[in-house]
Design a protein around this nucleic acid. Structure first.
Length: 198
DNA sequence: GGGAAGATGTTCT
DNA sequence: GAACATCTTCCCT
């Protein structure tokens, strides 16, 4: 197994971490086997001046992990069907995180395909926050998990040039829709493609 | 290849 | 009871 990034990687400002995560490898080990993919799309959620952030109205039972130590997982259930996986950033107590929106599958493609349902193209395995959670079997039981160790961790991947990273408005939110806090690798085929709505 | 709408359940008011 | 950091199917061009 590739060595995980150290916890200090996550302790910096959230926008920097959201950009820096692109190109790194999200790895998930389970009884069924290993699945992993390169992070190609992220979104930053900030504590100040960002009403779209779960932590913007203060601490609740649901968003409590966002106020915990940087480098832990914040996972929540949404729309009755899906999980979203976030990485907690900034020093503990601030309440910021990065949503992982899309991966480029690298390892365990067959297992991902089985979890996502038969006849699914490789492009559709992990090109969305709910999809990648299903493909990697990420659920509530991993909430608050330390991402510096198995069974869910992030390790150093390939270098991504600054010029190859685009920043655009975030997707699927109703507030603060104009902020350029969505980041992805230019021309990567696995980026989720939806236009913003509502 | 794109827009509309329904499914589904947890959290918070 | 409303809102929700989504996905899928169906129908249109």
């Amino acid at each position: 197994m590739l060595p995980p990034l150290s916890s200090s990687f996550y302790r910096h400002d959230t926008v920097s971490v959201a950009r820096a995560l692109l190109g790194h490898l999200l790895c998930r080990e389970s009884a069924a086997g290993l699945t992993a993919g390169i992070i190609v799309e992220t979104e930053a959620y900030l504590s100040r001046d960002d009403p779209a952030c779960h932590a913007s109205c203060g601490r609740t039972r649901r968003n409590a992990p966002m106020f915990g130590p940087p480098g832990q997982a914040y996972i929540y259930f949404i729309y009755g069907n899906h999980f979203c996986f976030n990485v907690v950033t900034a020093p503990a107590g601030i309440g910021e995180a990065v949503l992982i929106r899309a991966l480029e599958p690298v390892d365990g493609l067959e297992l991902m395909q089985r979890r996502r349902g038969q006849g699914r193209s490789v492009l559709e395995l992990t090109n969305g926050p709910g999809k990648l959670c299903q493909a990697l079997a990420i659920d509530q039981t991993l909430n608050e998990h330390d991402l510096c160790r198995p069974p869910l961790w992030i390790s150093a991947g390939r270098e991504v040039e600054k010029e190859a990273v685009i920043s655009v408005p975030r997707i699927g939110i109703s507030r603060a829709v104009d902020k350029l806090l969505r980041f992805y690798i230019k021309e990567n085929k696995y980026v989720s493609r939806r236009k913003s709505q509502r």
